[in-house]
């Protein structure tokens, strides 16, 4: 009986642990500092999480499909630099589609290597992390990129604008999250992504074009990265070459925190959004408590390991690993 109850609690923790942790944090921070739950604070957190969040949406597809994407940070720098550079050369109306095209071409290249050529995604995207960084530096000549006429462009609307009082980045993040939730949960493509990541061989034996599905997950990821780059460029109207550096791992942290298994086949957009928000709110909460930004690194470390540990422990039915 107690064993059963323990099992139950374990299951609930594993399935809803991330939501429970989220709630505990929110309540804790709210008690510690009233300002934490002020509307403008919450809106501020979501707004500043939007860039990371949009990238995490794309990576969720890649991870559910059973692969990694370590190149998104470097790719985001690329799209930011490219769109800023083209803004002054072509004007924003052409710069944006051009940048999306170029970024998604990079995604397609990765998708080709991982999907059709069946190369290890960890190494391919590691190589692309480096290569795209080089590409960005070559494009910019290593210099920071700035828009000449910062006041006179409508380009800033994506990062800084508001519609009906809601910041545009939040609208874009929310809109994409809803759109991709529908794609993943309701369309045949979404089902195929789960199947390919859950058991690629069985998917092939069921007539699912595994290579094409994997390819598409990378194109989606690149689309999200391009959107994030647009938000970033539009917010700051200028950028360093390394603006996205290190974000690939934060993105992955958010996706893992959301409970997607790195083995593929599981995870949802909703949970990834929760993962992103947890990272954002922890950062914000700790700052409000007067702690420096880096304390969140340590806290995030603890949370990631705890979250995954609980998940693993619930699956094997015991807390500690049986490894001798």
């Amino acid at each position: 009986m107690t064993g059963m109850t323990k099992q139950r609690i374990g299951n609930i923790l594993a399935k809803q642990g991330i939501l429970i942790a989220f709630a505990v944090f929110m309540i804790g921070f709210a008690i510690a500092n009233q300002r934490f739950i002020a509307i403008d604070n919450i809106s501020g957190v979501i707004r500043s999480s939007a860039i990371l969040g949009v990238m995490a949406l794309g990576v969720t597809f890649v991870v559910i499909g059973g692969n990694f994407d370590l190149s998104v940070g470097s790719m985001m720098s690329f799209s930011t630099i490219v769109v800023l550079d083209l803004h002054d050369k072509l004007g924003p109306a052409l710069a944006i589609p051009a940048m999306f095209g170029l970024t998604m071409a990079l995604g397609a290249f990765i998708g080709f290597l991982v999907g059709y050529m069946k190369l290890n995604s960890l190494i391919v995207t590691l190589g692309m992390l480096s290569a795209i960084h080089g590409l960005t530096l070559t494009w910019s000549g290593g210099k920071n990129m700035d828009i000449a006429d910062k006041a006179g462009t409508w380009f800033s609307v994506f990062g800084q604008g508001r519609i009906l009082g809601v910041p545009v980045p939040i609208l874009i993040f929310a809109g994409l999250a809803i759109f991709f939730t529908v794609v993943l949960m309701k369309t045949p493509f979404g089902r195929k992504v789960y199947a390919v990541g859950g058991n690629g061989q069985a998917a092939t034996f069921s007539g699912i074009p595994r290579a094409r599905i994997v390819f598409l997950t990378y194109v989606i990821s690149a689309f999200c990265v391009a959107t994030a780059g647009l938000l970033q460029a539009s917010r700051s109207l200028g950028s360093q070459n390394t603006v996205g550096q290190g974000m690939e791992l934060q993105v992955l942290a958010a996706v893992i925190l959301g409970g997607a298994s790195l083995m593929g086949g599981s995870g949802t957009i909703f949970k990834t959004v929760i993962g992103v928000l947890i990272l954002g709110f922890i950062q914000n909460g700790l700052l409000l408590m007067g702690l420096a930004f880096y304390v969140q690194y340590v806290v995030t470390w603890g949370i990631i390991i705890l979250a995954v540990w609980l998940d693993v422990a619930a699956k094997r039915g015991r807390l500690w690993s049986p490894t001798a």
């Binding site: 791992l249 790195l262 880096y294 340590v298 995030t300 470390w301 603890g302 490894t323």
Partner: peptide
């Protein structure tokens, strides 16, 4: 060893955590 969590995730976490310690 003890949690059975994949080394990739464990060290991804400590990459952030240790960096935090550096700043602290």
């Amino acid at each position: 060893w003890k949690t059975g969590v994949d080394a990739f995730i464990v060290t991804l976490g400590s990459m952030l955590g240790y960096r935090g310690l550096v700043f602290m």
